[in-house]
């Protein structure tokens, strides 16, 4: 498997699994405006996933659906942050702040990639995720500095998801040797600066250094991932060879 294939899959799987979780909010959000907003965000993520999986698939004769529906759990390369169950709305916004801030820095740099497809996807996506960051930021501020209950929940969410953030910036041989890729290790400082500024303004305290989960990039996931995939894949797998 080529490095470029694996790289496109990593980014595509992040977006796909994030979209799958985001979509669970539709018809369950705290207010109707938020059903619409989270639906938009999920659709953006799904759109990014499709472009990236189509690109990966074009390298070995598979379709986006072959990759989404017919790979096994160990072949999915997304970070674990994206697959965790939704939790409450504070968790949704903490995850979106962490993830979209990372994606924003990543896509911003990827725009300059010598790979035209990657730079094209990044050029479109960077605008979308700028909105996701903004949406998450507004909510983290409201919840952190809202009521005592919302503050408590926001703090808990920021703390619980923090241990899943180091994985976003994990570097490895692949990203170091693939010239068209962005090495995420280089994004860490700016990410922290931005995210911590939001957390400070929200009146929450900065999460403490803690155990950091790893493994998504090599297909080792949390126990939640199998259930997520079972749901995502089951209809497609029940009708082998069918088109939809």
């Amino acid at each position: 498997m080529s490095d470029l294939f694996t790289y496109a899959l990593r980014l595509g799987d992040d977006a796909l699994i994030a979209a799958q979780r985001m979509a669970e909010w539709i018809a369950a959000a705290p207010q109707l405006e938020e059903d619409v907003a989270l639906g938009n965000i999920g659709l953006d993520q799904l759109g990014q996933a499709r472009s990236l999986l189509q690109y990966a698939g074009s390298m070995d004769g598979r379709t986006e659906d072959d990759l989404a529906y017919f790979r096994e759990e160990r072949e999915f390369l997304n970070v674990q942050l994206c697959e965790l169950p939704n939790g409450d709305f504070a968790h949704a916004m903490a995850r979106l702040l962490y993830f979209a801030s990372y994606q924003h820095l990543l896509y911003d740099e990827l725009r300059a990639s010598a790979d035209e497809t990657l730079s094209g996807v990044a050029g479109k996506a960077v605008k979308e995720v700028a909105y996701h960051v903004d949406h998450a930021t507004q909510w983290v501020l409201r919840l952190g500095d809202g009521t005592s209950e919302s503050h408590r929940r926001m703090q808990a969410a920021l703390d619980e998801l923090w241990p899943y953030t180091a994985e976003l910036f994990e570097s490895d041989d692949l990203v170091r040797r693939l010239p068209v890729a962005v090495d995420p290790a280089g994004l860490r400082d700016e990410w922290e600066r931005r995210v911590l500024a939001v957390i400070d303004e929200s009146t929450c305290s900065r999460p403490e250094a803690s155990y950091q989960h790893r493994g998504g990039r090599s297909g080792q996931h949390t126990e939640h991932m199998g259930f997520l995939l079972a749901e995502l894949q089951h209809v497609a797998r029940s009708h082998p060879g069918a088109t939809w």
Binding site: P30, E34, F89, L143
Partner: peptide
């Protein structure tokens, strides 16, 4: 489930 979120938004 969303009540605390709407209350927070109003308080903010």
């Amino acid at each position: 489930d969303g009540a605390w979120v709407r209350e927070a938004a109003a308080a903010y």
